[in-house]
Design a protein around this nucleic acid. Sequence first.
DNA 1: CTGTTAGCGCATTCAC
DNA 2: GTGAATGCGCTAACAG
Lengths: 339, 339
Amino acid sequence: MENNKITIHDIAKKLNINSSTVSRALNNSPRVTQKTKDKIIAAANEMGYQRNLLASSLRTSRTHTIGIIVPRISRHFFSSAIAGIEETAYEAGYHVFICQSLEQLEREQNLVNTLLANRVDGVMVSISMETENYDHFQGLKNRGVPLVFFDRHCDIPGYNTVLIDDFRAGFEATEHLIVQGCKNIAHLSGPQNVEIYKNRFKGYQKALEKYHIPFKEEMVFSSRLMEKDGAESAKSILALNTKVDGLFSANDVAAIGAMQYFKEKGIKIPHDIAIVGFSNEPISGIMEPSLTTIDQPGFEMGRLATNLLVSQIENKAKEIMKETIVLKPSLIERRSSIK
Amino acid sequence: MENNKITIHDIAKKLNINSSTVSRALNNSPRVTQKTKDKIIAAANEMGYQRNLLASSLRTSRTHTIGIIVPRISRHFFSSAIAGIEETAYEAGYHVFICQSLEQLEREQNLVNTLLANRVDGVMVSISMETENYDHFQGLKNRGVPLVFFDRHCDIPGYNTVLIDDFRAGFEATEHLIVQGCKNIAHLSGPQNVEIYKNRFKGYQKALEKYHIPFKEEMVFSSRLMEKDGAESAKSILALNTKVDGLFSANDVAAIGAMQYFKEKGIKIPHDIAIVGFSNEPISGIMEPSLTTIDQPGFEMGRLATNLLVSQIENKAKEIMKETIVLKPSLIERRSSIK
DNA sequence: CTGTTAGCGCATTCAC
DNA sequence: GTGAATGCGCTAACAG
């Protein structure tokens, strides 16, 4: 039917008015009569007009788009977070540009530049496991593009951040195992440049300390916390001289990898080894209730982070404030007692 | 350090040359001396120049961005497909704008318009379960924006499509159950406006026919194939007069829901009821090998669909060809025999 | 090889 | 309340 590209000029010509009026009408400016507005909007619909956001953004230097960089969209936590982000962003009139770093620093760096080149109004990041410095975020700061970290944040102060209390999560997870009777508790930890893993580890140590259980270096297995890392760590755990009877994993995926390995070896969960990991709904749901998990409120974090970002974007005139929102983790016990 | 917005004019001024030359140099045009190129690139880096893609795209009417609409990014099949799409797109010099319809027609319609307004160079869609007509894709055609359907396609000819042979998948799944000794095989089916579900259903019927097993309407449970739908169907299956001993589910999620329900009720899989579903790696991996699955080559489909789309985009001068690529499904048996 | 000019589509001054 | 003119930053056409 309608051909290719209809511009405000085309509809102005047809109505024998000026394109500025059309522009104003379509932006619902109060400086246009309702009558002419109606006429213009009717004509626009009829002609199949569609605003060219590129031109509009070029002119206003606002894209109403926010960029988000996560390690991997298929991870349950991140897809929940994205759901929260999209919902909130949509309500505030923003679109979301979703990007995956795939845990690679180089990709993360490129993505920041891509987002910058696309002139997004703000950026939300959960850093990759390889990210140890933050130079690549400097460009955002130079351009005055608001940035919010969520979940996997950095330890440099002065950034806006939404996170959960990971120290507390680690502490409670470990305490839970201790209270249930575990004596030798191993820990699967992640790269220490990522604050969440560092803090979960600290929580683990603190819980041991509280219950006067000696901390042993060899009980901590550091890896990138993929499924196979969990399995490998499980193998190492079985090879230890000490008989391990509890395990706290710093993420969901590694916990699952470890659990699988243990099961293959005929080890009973939680009877022989009790595990506390993090929630991963699609998987948690189909497992027998052998895993106690810590819930990560991804959706909620997404919402909060987006609100924070949007308020930064829209108050850019004022000095950008630095804010940190801390959420409480919650332990989900799938059974009344472990041992 | 560097301030806000540096344009090609700024760097032209600094070097006492014309901005067109700068533009040409930055686009690596052969019509600029290597010397001046080097000089310009050096200056650009030094000044922290970053191309404004909005302006560039406005001028060239090419964004080098492709939009993709899937029902839900967290679904294993789609996240694999997205991985394939991103990889291929990146190689071809395109960015990917990922959107989720969340199985809602209205969202799908809005997303098409959003992509259009953002002037993406092409679009890839796997339709929602609610999508029964295709008017909302008309705008793409009018604008000459190439469109490729993958996996969940439509039955209207004249569109580019990448799909797997779903009839064959349904047939082989059902045949597998029959050969393993199942006599009463139920089927979990999805909305029949979605071709893949229709064809899987047809394959199921054809297999029954081949083995002279009477088809019974009450053995088919139609739903939106969510996890809870699978569970509900499982409940209905147990309430039947006929004792069902085999189940073919038209997707992975419903199969998992059904399996959980059966297990809760103490029914042994596959001894009491054998199930064939579709692969869902993160979940398949942690289950005991009780589920035979059909592999959906998401990554491969993503690659193929992207290649198809890119070739359409880049040959837009010629008439747009219509092509359908059909992939073979492959049955993955996790154990040698079921019964 | 490089400079000049014009315009992509829109929003925003400034007039009236 | 509406029209005319200008420019966002870039690239393409045409000169030279």
